[in-house]
Structure formats: C-alpha cells, structure tokens
Nucleic acid binder design. Structure first.
Lengths: 307, 307
DNA sequence: AGCGGCGATGCAAATAATGCATCACGCGGT
DNA sequence: ACCGCGTGATGCATTATTTGCATCGCCGCT
C-alpha cells in the first residue's frame, strides 16, 4: 500500500530513534525521510518528534499520532485479509508472542495443525517476557499473546485462561521417574534446575519455597528452557515446567526421554496461562481463526482447569 | 491532510455513485480520480467498485474497504483533536444528528451553552429520521445522535436514556390552557395537529388511540414541527410534543405564547429519548466533552425519568 | 439509429518526491 | 580547549509521479 508505506516510515523512525538509521533500514536516503517527517509535522500543525543531539524521540503529540498510525496499519491489514477471504482463499499472517516457557511446544504444535489446513497463512512468533508481550500487543506488533502468570492490565482482552499446575521433569531413568506425584521436598534430594528470576515460573516456585521454608538452590540456572530440558539427559537433575510446555504428543528428539510429574499444589500454587489480544481490536481473519482454534484446544485439553 | 484527502476521494465516489460527479464535487478532473481508483484497486488486488453503465457502485470488498477508510478518517480527526487539546486550546468539530422533534430546542440550547465556553469548537447538525440517524452514526458521518422512540440496533452505544411523557401544547388563550393535566379525550373536542406517520411521536400517539379506541384525525398534519407550533397561535388547536422539545427557558418568539400540558400516561405511553454514539468508537475531545455535558444535563433535568 | 452519459486510456504538461552536497549544532574523546 | 563524529536541516538539479486534455468504446434511452 502506498500511503501506508509513508506512515510505516514514521513508525520505523519512532522505533529506531534516528532518521538516518531508519532511512538506511528502509533503503531510502535520510533526506527523503526527513522531508516526509517535516511535511507531516506541518500538516498536523505540531512537531511530532523532539530533536535530540543523538537523534529524534516522539513527544506527546507524536505518541498519540503513532498510535493512530499503528492502528491504521493493523486495521488495513485486517481489511485486506477480510477481502482476500471473500474470494475463498484463506491467506494472511498471524503474529504471536509468548513466554519462553510456553513457546517451545504448545504453540508450534498448534501452528502446525493450523497450517496443515491453511498453508497460505504465515506465522511469526516473538519469544519475550510478559511485559514485552503486553507492550507488543499494545502497539499492534503482535495479534495474539500467550503469557504466564502476570498481572494483566485492563487494555487487553482475555480470550482464554487455563490453570497450570507446576510439574517437575526429569530423565526417564531418574529414581523419581515412576512416581505419580511429587512433593517439593522430594525434589530437593537432587540437583535442581531453575529458570531466571524474571520468569513467571520462577516466581511461582519462589512462592512455593517461601510457604514451605525450603530453599531451592539451583544447580543450573538459565533463561533458556530448552537448555534445561536438554541437561536433564546428562545428570539426574530435576527441572520444572508447565503441562502446556511438555505434554504434547511425542514428536522428535529428547522430549521422549523425559517424564513429567505434577508437584503437589499445596507446595506450589498453580499458575495461570492467559491467551490475550489487544482490547477493542478486530483481528484479521487468519488471526481470528487461529485464536479460535487455540481457545477450543486449550479449553478442551485442560477442561477441568478452565476458569 | 494529504493522504487522507486521497481516501476522502474514494469516499465521495462511493457516496455519489459516479466518478465524474465526484470529480466535479471535488474540483478535480474525472481522469485523476479514475486513475486513483484504478491504482487503489491494483494495490488492494481486487476491484472495489462494480462498473455500471450509469456509474459505479461498491462491491463487497469495496464495502469492507470504505468502512476502513471512514474509520481512518474519523480516527485521524480524533487524534488531531486530542493533539490540539494538548496545547490547551479546545478546538474541533462536533457533528450531531437528531429527530425533528428534538432538534429545535434542546440541542440548540446545549450547543449555545457549550460554545459560550469553547468558541473554537464548531457544530453541525443533521435533522433526520431515526433510521437515517443510525446510518449516519454507523458510517461515521455524525458523532452523536439524539433519537426518539426507535428500535435500537446493537452497534450503537447508549450514553443516556430519558423517559419523555407526551405533552399537549396549545396557545395560552386556549380553554384548556390552565389545566394541570389532560386526558386524550379532552383534546378531541378541538382541532388536532399531528406529525407525519414516520415520526416516533406519531407512532406513540397511535398506540394511545388504539388502546382507548379513540380516533385522532388531524386538522393539520406536517413533518415540520415548527409549523405546527406556529399554527397554534392562529387556531385553538392542540398539538403534541415532548418536554425536551418545549420546556426550555423562554427565548425569543412564539414559544412564550404556548403552554405545554402533560397527557395522562394511561392514555399515551411515555416515549424514550436515547443519546447515542457509534459503539467502539473513541470520540474526539470536543465531541466527548459535549456528550458528557448532554448526559449530565439530561440526567439532571429529567432525573425522575432517567432509566 | 442517434444521442448523451459513463468509465478507460495515450500522450504531454505540471507537480511533487528524491538524492547529492553541504550546513549548523551538540556530544565525547583527546 | 579542541577536533572528530554523529545528528537533523536545507538549496538545487534530477527523476518519478500525478494531472489534464482529447479521445475511445460501451450501454441505455429516446
């Protein structure tokens, strides 16, 4: 789209914080971009950026305006998607964001199922912290977010929520591997693997250890969930996860060699996984249909935990 | 706004149903306009208009797209309004629509009050039928609508509703002028003035006459409420109105010579006046503030009738 | 059959956007 | 205190793009 392109330019400038950097990124000269900004500011009647020695930054009016631009862009893509849908082809793009804990298994599986039906639909996924996920929803970078255990602001719409009891995972040769359930104390006899402090799962575990005055000291600590999962094959260590991030049909690789055992809920409270979209936003057909699939799957797969 | 202008062109074409007519209206040649449309259709990838021998008409994709355009335009004006509001000046434009019964007194008074405070805000008012009012809200031609006694669709937001008992009005020299209240039968002894059949008030009166098996035959029938009001000075005839369309501080002219007496509610049911805006739409600051004033005034002036 | 209105299109003129070179300014290192 | 380096702004020539005129083909109406 032509006129949308012009607005996109402004968006890139706002994000990169520099006209020259943005120009390079957009494969045009800084002159043209600068002229565009000046012209736009003239039209609006106010400056939209404040000029700093190191570049530019949005002022209040600019913040208001960039929000409008982003809304326009996403609304246009929604409309184009709907129009494409009129002619029968189901095409489009779905942009997701999720916590690291949730990104590895559930969403890939779901994307696969969806794309087996509509292969003209493409996906992109940002793996980021809950706060960043919410920000991405807010400025329309992503259509749908799946986040774990975070305080939710009022400007998001909750499409579904499932309760997830924390599980311990370990290699199938582990002494505890055949237990039907575990207490937190049981795990302490072995090396423990923990996610980083900014993780929602870590927060939940810390609540658990405070309640039971048990101290969890990590033998291995990482912000990468897959690394922890791999390490379980090399030492009889215990890690923690959510059903959603493990309980999938056995696919390829090491997932088969791991077992996943629920930890007593009186030791560690259950966490909530929320499926979110920006409030008041109408999603493109592809995204709406994928969201619908997620809601149905989540409510179907974890029915007793549905709120 | 430059890029908005281009979209505005499309809107005008859609409304006028002809490229040439639209071009004339926009003071450009039909060639340029035609080219714009073709270019846009190319960008979208589908035709947006169907070409008829008599002109053009939106197809389904076009309907989808024009809705997007209108949303964009109104959202932009909202943003510009908010930006102007940042610098302290309260400027902007408020677009209203109302039934003929409601347009003559209440809204002009309220506009006057508002403009005495913020004279940089301009107003426009469409006087039209409830159905047209709703359509105007829907395609973003108006910000706020005040309509009487109509079935409301679900795509509007009700900002306020007041119950309005039907009143009879007559010249102050009329034999019935000093009664505190009237029965419908009382009115029959005199010439009766009625609005046209498509009016909400007329519908209410017809409910009344069915219930009491009284036949109201109009001595004077008009779609112009002011005409009926004027005529009351020339014959001891009785007309019907709502408190909202009469009970204002005596201004200029003939309103002072008229009296307004409630008709028993067992004869004529009360009607509902709804203050509406398009659902899901964020109003420009000026309109939002005016709407707020209307809500407060309506709830304050007709408190016992508020639902 | 003829007329008038409609949208589409080729071609030239007008208009607007772009790129290059350059300026002025503020920051950070020497 | 200085100079180098980055930033955004601006004058001018070049290049794209848009616009307008004249014209075509089409359809409905008289």
């Amino acid at each position: 789209m032509r006129h949308l392109t012009h607005l996109k330019y402004i968006d890139v400038v706002a994000r990169s914080g520099s006209i020259r950097k943005a120009a390079e990124q957009l494969n045009i000269t800084s002159t043209a971009l600068n002229r565009r900004i000046l012209a736009l500011e003239e039209e609006v009647g106010t400056s939209l950026f404040e000029r700093l020695p190191s570049g530019v930054r949005l002022n209040t009016a600019g913040e208001l305006f960039i929000q409008h631009i982003r809304l326009q862009m996403t609304d246009l893509s929604r409309v184009l998607s709907q129009i494409a849908d009129l002619s029968g082809v189901r095409r489009g793009h779905v942009s997701l964001s999720a916590n690291p804990e949730l990104a590895s298994s559930f969403l890939p599986e779901q994307i696969g199922i969806y794309r087996s039906q509509f292969d003209a639909v493409s996906f992109s996924m940002l793996v980021q912290s809950p706060a960043d996920s919410l920000a991405s929803l807010r400025d329309f970078q992503t259509d749908i977010a799946l986040i774990f255990d975070s305080v939710l602001p009022s400007d998001v719409h909750i499409a579904a929520t499932v309760e997830q009891q924390v599980h311990a995972f370990m290699h199938k040769t582990h002494p505890l591997a055949d237990r039907p359930a575990l207490r937190l104390e049981d795990c302490l006899a072995y090396a423990v693997m923990l996610p980083e402090h900014d993780s929602g799962l870590r927060a939940l575990l810390e609540v658990g250890q405070m309640q039971s005055s048990i101290s969890l000291s990590a033998a291995l600590c990482s912000d990468n969930f897959d690394l922890l999962r791999s390490y379980a094959c090399f030492e009889p260590a215990i890690g923690f996860c959510l059903p959603m991030s493990m309980h999938i049909k056995p696919g390829a690789g090491q997932a088969d060699d791991l077992v996943c055992i629920p930890v007593a809920s009186r030791d560690i409270p259950a966490g909530l996984v929320h499926l979110l979209q920006a409030k008041g936003r109408v999603l493109p057909v592809a995204a709406a249909k994928f969201l619908d699939q997620l809601v149905v799957t989540m409510n179907g797969r974890f029915p007793e935990q549905t709120r």
